[in-house]
Structure formats: structure tokens, C-alpha cells
Design a protein around this nucleic acid. Structure first.
Length: 701
DNA sequence: TCAATCCGTATC
DNA sequence: ATACGGATTGAC
């Protein structure tokens, strides 16, 4: 039922009029009279008997006979709602795009059933036998899958990585020679990864390998994904692949056209507009294409015989849905793989702590390049300087460029290659670091990040609100704190002056370049907007790293490394003169990981640290935001798991405050359930102020 | 004794 | 939300 009230988040039974008996099938959109008014609803299940004691109403109208909610996606939506303490209706809104009647009528395929075939039965609707239908039935119990859902994965031993049995729905692949041709080309592309060919082989045999893939430098990742997709398709199964943004989508789109040929995949992104979006959705739903690619909402896209889910660069913020209940595309896809027994390919140049957790629990295997392959493809990476003054002051940094960065750029330009300069965007939150060793300052009680409260000079914790008086740095024992505020962004013009006679191009929010030719040019970009250079960049300069590293964010260092690796991956190999200069202290772990091109090492370190500090993904957190009394009321109402730990409150925007609830991962389901139920109780008694519930919020500061 | 109003509760 | 029922109140 498409009503926003948490306490109405359940199924209601309706009678199906005889004339709709053949068309009002599970997964269709319906309209029903509910509490006196007509509301939109989803027909979840048809049953012979209702358990409802009162009298049932009839479906008012079948909006469309299109069964937009498949059984598989229906289960997924339910699982995602449960995981994120959200309502089914909220998740359905994310999962199923708005209907577009014209597209539905005219997708280019003739309708198989004529609408007038029901006339014979429509003569006596009132006396016709009717069937009770739970229009929003209790969702079917999820099919149990060995190993439990990803949430439960930590308990699993190494053997839990055993692949789920091949899905019996898999249809046989086409002619063997087609398969082996696709397979052979793909095997070549994946050969730098010792387990790559094996992974593809498993896909080709319809099995469900699960891999965390660390792409080697310079990797043509859209092509690798397209190859994995092609092998899966050749084995008769479908693929869903999610990338962060439109630019990556274009690249994957092109690669898929190359490997699969035209018309074998659909592209699903909200930015395409309602008609195209619904058309892409329908072509997956109707089985016209075996592959659907898109941005985060495509994680829910229907395809027939799902065999593989792919996510690229799962650390990118764009994968986090900003609308309730704020699901993350990675979690949606992993849940989906768990429910269906599909294979998983979670790739990126970097590796998130969440992906590392999948590896360490044995839920997924690593797919990393051999050291030889990495050595052969990696650029030479050098750190420069550890003076934060240098990195923060554009003028000083420019002045110091010649020492190493400027020299590397000069040589690259002279060799006829473009140079990439990555500069962070301005506007990060000011945070607090140790004045002596510059380690980000954390709360002694809960390990939350400290902030400087503008009025008093005393820093406080962003999580638990405690004042950090008499703070001592655990690293160096220092007592002084300093604000690390990002300096002015270096402009392209400033860089242009440093390289007279060389064209300077910019790529950023307003205008993103896709490619640059193999000619001398300085390309200034913000992270995420790096153009691909034909033949690779001769040099990549990573500037203002201090700003990235000291951001007041749990993921600051991980995010810095992600951005650096993504940019550095576009450089030429060292043997072709490719160089990367990172203006940062080589002793910083994230910098170390870049120098050694070892994202797995960094992710393991990061995860260990999160475990120690009790941060996600090692634990589960919920954030509750709202008016202070509303938040308190919700917590009062909620029957939280016994070991739930409360942190806060801390002030949030407009008179609101935020509380954090932390539990061990084993209690994650209970926490979500308790919070969702409490929200239901509150809305039932018309509690005046809502509380926003976010599970593992992306912005843990 | 009846109607107007308030509050609490269910919404198939 | 909003529609309904049962209780409550006020006026005849």
C-alpha cells in the first residue's frame, strides 16, 4: 500500500473481481479503497483464503497488467526494507520506476494478450465467484540460502565461501563454440589476475563465485565487466551491473556493446528521464535483454535468471541512496546475490573496509592482480614533502612544484603526454587534528571525531557530545589541537602559469571531460571527474592531500586513497615513463598503500582499526535524527537489543539532535526491527515529530 | 433525552 | 492521513 505511515507497513487483503481474475496477478500495480480513499497499492500475492476477520473490499482498479514486481525483486525489496528499518512502500518506490503508459503500450514488441479477451466473463461481475487476495501479502519467507545473509557472514568460517549450488532455473547456454569464443577472449583479459580465468570459468558453468576484485593499474575495467557479463550471458543467465555515475555508465555501455553486440543490454538511470528509464526497466523485466546496467537504483532492476551482480567502485558516495531508507547499492546487490544464489563481482581500484569484510569472513574471494602484473602496469609513485603548510597553501605548493612534481610534469609534457592534476573540491568540514603530529583527533570515550565548537574554544565530540577538555594525543602525547581547514583551491590558471605554452583543460562538476588525446596538456580535475587519456597520462599529480586526509569523516583516509588510486590508475606504466607524485608524507598508511599499490593491505588495516574502534562494518550503527524529545521518545519506545550502546546526543541542523545506537553485527537485524516497530508505534499514536532512522549512515562524520 | 464534540483507534 | 465509534459534555 503506497501510504507513508510506518504503522501501515503491512499487507491488506482485497477481493479480486472476476473480470480481473486473469490479469490482477502478483506484482501488478492496483488501486484500492483504503480508509475511504483511493490509494495506489501493489498486488503481492494471490491466495484462496483470507485470514482477515472483517469484510473485504474489492480491488478498485488494476492500474496495469504489467507485473512490474517479480518474485525475486519482491523478496529483495522486503529484505532491504528489513535491513534498513524502512517501509516496504519506501523501498518499492526506489526499486520500481514510475509507470509510463505509452512506453508500456509501445516498447516495440507486440502484446501477447489482447485486453478484450475478458468480455465473456464480465457479464455478471457481482455474482461471479471472487477470490480473496492479499494485495500486499506478507512477503514470502525468504528462501534460505547456505551461509546466511551477508549480515550474518562474520560467523561463517572460511568454508562458507563455498559457492551456492547452481540455480536450477538456469537455462542452457547457446552453441558451445559461441561460448568458448566469448570465454577465450574474456580469459585473456582476466589473465593478469591469477584467479581471474577460474572466476570466468565458474561463471560460464553457471556457478556462483563471489569475488572482491582489485583492478590493476590502467585496467580497462568496463571491458573486464563486459567480459564477465558476456560469459554469464553465454551460460544463459542474466546480469545486473551498477556503476557510480553517468560517465562510468557510458563507458560500460560502450564496452558491453562491444562484447555482446547491440541490443543485448539496457541502461537504467534516473538521469535518462521517465520514459527511457521505464523502457529500460521493462526490457529487463520482459526478458528482452539479459543485462541491465545503471546507477544505484538499477541494483533492483529485474532480469531473467539472474546469474551475476556487479558493482564498480563501491566506495563512491553515489552508491548511497539519499532517500529513505537510505540503502547502499552494494548492500542491495549483496543481499540479492545471497537471496538468488547469483555470482558477485565487486570491483574497484581500491578496496573498501566493507569489501574487505566479505573477504575476511570468507563470503567472497579476492580477485587481485599478480605482483608481476601490478609491477608491469603501475606507474612510478613518489611522495613529496610532509609539510602540511606546503600542501595547504596554494602559492607555496606552486612554488615547490618544480622540486619533483613540476619536474615530473615537465618531462611528461616534453615526451608528448598529457598530465593530470587532481585537486580536491573546497568546502570540507573543518575538523580537529593533533597540533604536533597531525593525527585526526578522536574522542577518548567513543572514538568519534572531535570538532571545534565555534563559540567556545573547547573541542567536543561529534558523536557523544562530550567535551574533550585536557585532550591528549594517543599517538604522540601532545596536548595541542589545531583546526585543519581546507585552503583555497588551486586554480587552473595558476597551474597554467607554471607551464607556459601548454594548454590547460579542466574537468569538474560543471563540465566533465570523458577523454583527452595523447598530446601535451595539463588536465586539472576534481576527484571523480578524471578523463581517461589515450595511452595514459605521462604524469599524475595529487595535490592538497592534507585537505582530503584530515576531513572530519570516518572514511577520510579510505576515501583519499580511493581518489588517488582512481587517478593514478590512469597513468602510463613506469616502464613507459608514467609517474605519480603525491604531495603527502610517505609515512601515512594511505600514502603507503598508493606507493606499493596495495589496496588490499590498506583495507585490511582499515577494517582492523574499525573493528577495534567499534565502527561499521565491524559493528552496526543506527543514527536517529529529529527533535530532541522525539528522539528520546523513539528510544523509549524501542525494545533495543540488550547490548545496544547509545552515543550522544549531539546537535544537528535546525533544533534537531542526533543519537547513535551501536550493536554488534549479530544484533543488526534485531536493532532494525526494534527501530522500525518503534517508529510504527509512534506514528500510530500520532507522535507529532518524526525521527529519521538511518542504518550504517554514510555520513558518520 | 438528544445532538454536538472530543478522543482513540483501525484502515482489508 | 481520515473516517468511524464510543464516551463526554452541554442544552433543552
Amino acid at each position: 500500500m503506497d501510504v507513508p505511515l510506518p504503522h501501515l507497513d503491512r499487507a491488506f487483503d482485497y477481493l479480486v473481481p472476476a473480470e480481473l481474475a486473469g490479469t490482477a496477478l502478483p506484482g501488478t500495480r492496483v488501486r484500492v479503497r483504503f480508509a475511504g480513499q483511493l490509494v495506489d497499492g501493489w498486488l503481492l500475492e494471490r491466495v484462496a483464503e483470507s485470514t482477515h476477520e472483517g469484510k473485504l473490499g474489492f480491488l478498485d482498479k488494476l492500474v496495469s497488467p504489467e507485473r512490474v514486481l517479480s518474485d525475486e525483486v519482491s523478496q529483495l525489496v522486503k529484505a532491504v526494507a528489513d535491513r534498513y528499518a524502512g517501509s516496504l512502500a519506501d523501498v518499492l518506490r526506489l526499486a520500481v520506476p514510475a509507470r509510463h503508459a505509452r512506453v508500456e503500450q509501445n516498447p516495440g514488441t507486440p502484446p501477447t494478450v489482447r485486453a478484450d479477451s475478458a468480455t465473456a466473463e464480465a457479464e455478471h461481475p457481482a455474482s461471479a465467484p471472487v477470490e480473496p487476495v492479499p494485495a500486499v501479502g506478507e512477503p514470502a519467507v525468504a528462501r534460505p540460502v547456505p551461509g546466511g545473509p551477508p549480515d550474518a557472514a562474520p560467523a561463517a568460517s572460511g568454508s562458507a565461501a563455498a559457492e551456492p549450488a547452481a540455480d536450477e532455473r538456469a537455462i542452457p547456454g547457446p552453441a558451445a563454440e559461441t561460448l568458448s569464443a566469448a570465454g577465450r577472449a574474456a580469459q585473456d583479459g582476466w589473465s593478469p589476475y591469477p584467479h581471474g580465468p577460474g572466476f570466468l570459468q565458474a561463471l560460464g558453468e553457471g556457478r556462483a563465485p563471489r569475488a572482491v576484485w582489485s583492478a590493476i593499474p590502467g585496467e580497462d575495467w568496463p571491458r573486464r565487466i563486459a567480459e564477465a557479463a558476456a560469459v554469464t550471458v553465454a551460460a544463459g543467465r542474466g546480469v545486473v551491473a551498477v556503476v557510480p555515475d553517468a560517465r562510468d555508465l557510458d563507458r560500460l555501455d560502450a564496452a558491453l556493446t562491444g562484447t555482446l553486440g547491440p541490443g543485448r543490454h539496457a541502461t537504467l538511470a534516473a538521469s535518462l528521464g521517465p520514459a527511457k528509464r521505464y523502457r529500460a526497466f521493462l526490457s529487463g523485466l520482459r526478458g528482452h535483454v539479459p543485462v541491465v546496467i545503471g546507477t544505484r537504483a538499477a541494483a533492483f532492476a529485474p532480469v531473467h535468471h539472474l546469474g551475476l551482480v556487479v558493482i564498480w567502485d563501491d566506495g563512491d558516495d553515489s552508491h548511497a541512496e539519499p532517500r529513505a531508507p537510505y540503502p547502499h547499492a552494494r548492500e542491495v546487490l549483496l543481499t540479492r546475490a545471497q537471496l538468488t544464489g547469483a555470482a558477485v563481482l565487486a570491483g574497484g581500484f581500491t578496496r573498501t573496509a566493507e569489501a574487505q569484510q566479505l573477504v575476511e569472513t570468507g563470503w567472497a574471494h579476492e580477485l587481485t592482480g599478480s605482483r608481476d602484473a601490478i609491477r608491469a602496469r603501475a606507474p612510478h609513485v613518489a611522495p613529496i614533502g610532509d609539510d602540511p603548510q606546503l600542501a595547504r597553501d596554494p602559492a607555496a605548493a606552486t612554488a615547490r612544484l618544480p622540486s619533483l612534481a613540476w619536474q615530473a610534469a615537465r618531462e611528461a609534457l616534453r615526451a608528448g603526454a598529457p598530465v593530470l592534476v587532481q585537486v580536491p573540491r573546497r568546502g570540507y568540514l573543518p575538523s580537529v587534528a593533533c597540533g604536533t603530529c597531525r593525527e585526526p583527533a578522536r574522542c577518548a570515550h567513543c572514538q568519534g571525531p572531535l570538532e571545534l565548537r565555534s563559540s567556545q574554544g573547547v573541542p567536543g565530540c561529534r558523536w557523544c557530545g562530550r567535551v574533550a577538555a585536557g585532550w591528549t594525543c594517543p599517538e604522540c602525547g601532545g596536548h595541542r589541537l589545531r583546526a585543519s581547514i581546507v585552503g583555497a583551491r588551486r586554480t587552473a590558471e595558476e597551474l597554467g602559469r607554471a607551464f607556459p605554452g601548454v594548454p590547460v583543460r579542466t574537468s569538474g562538476r560543471d563540465e566533465v571531460l570523458l577523454r583527452v588525446p595523447a598530446e601535451p596538456a595539463v588536465v586539472v580535475c576534481t576527484p571523480g571527474a578524471e578523463p581517461v587519456a589515450d595511452g595514459g597520462y605521462g604524469a599524475v599529480l595529487l595535490l592538497d592531500t592534507w585537505a582530503l586526509l584530515t576531513r572530519a569523516d570516518l572514511r577520510a583516509a579510505e576515501e583519499a586513497l580511493r581518489r588517488w588510486l582512481t587517478a593514478a590508475a590512469l597513468a602510463r606504466p613506469q616502464r613507459a615513463g608514467g609517474r605519480v607524485v603525491v604531495v603527502a608524507d610517505g609515512g601515512i598508511p594511505a600514502v603507503q598503500a598508493l606507493l606499493r599499490w596495495d589496496p588490499a593491505w590498506y583495507a585490511a588495516r582499515e577494517l582492523a582499526e574499525r573493528r577495534e574502534l567499534g565502527f561499521p562494518p565491524a559493528s552496526r550503527m543506527a543514527s536517529l535524527t529529529g527533535q530532541p524529545d522525539a528522539v528520546a521518545d523513539l528510544l523509549d519506545t524501542a525494545r533495543l537489543p540488550d547490548d545496544a550502546e547509545l552515543l550522544g546526543p549531539v546537535p544537528a541542523d535546525d533544533d534537531q539532535e542526533r543519537m547513535l545506537v551501536r550493536v554488534r553485527r549479530g544484533a543488526a537485524g534485531a536493532l532494525a526491527k526494534a527501530l522500525h516497530e518503534a517508529a510504527g508505534v509512534r506514528s500510530a499514536r500520532k507522535a507529532p515529530h518524526p525521527v529519521r532512522i538511518q542504518i550504517d549512515p554514510h555520513d558518520l562524520f
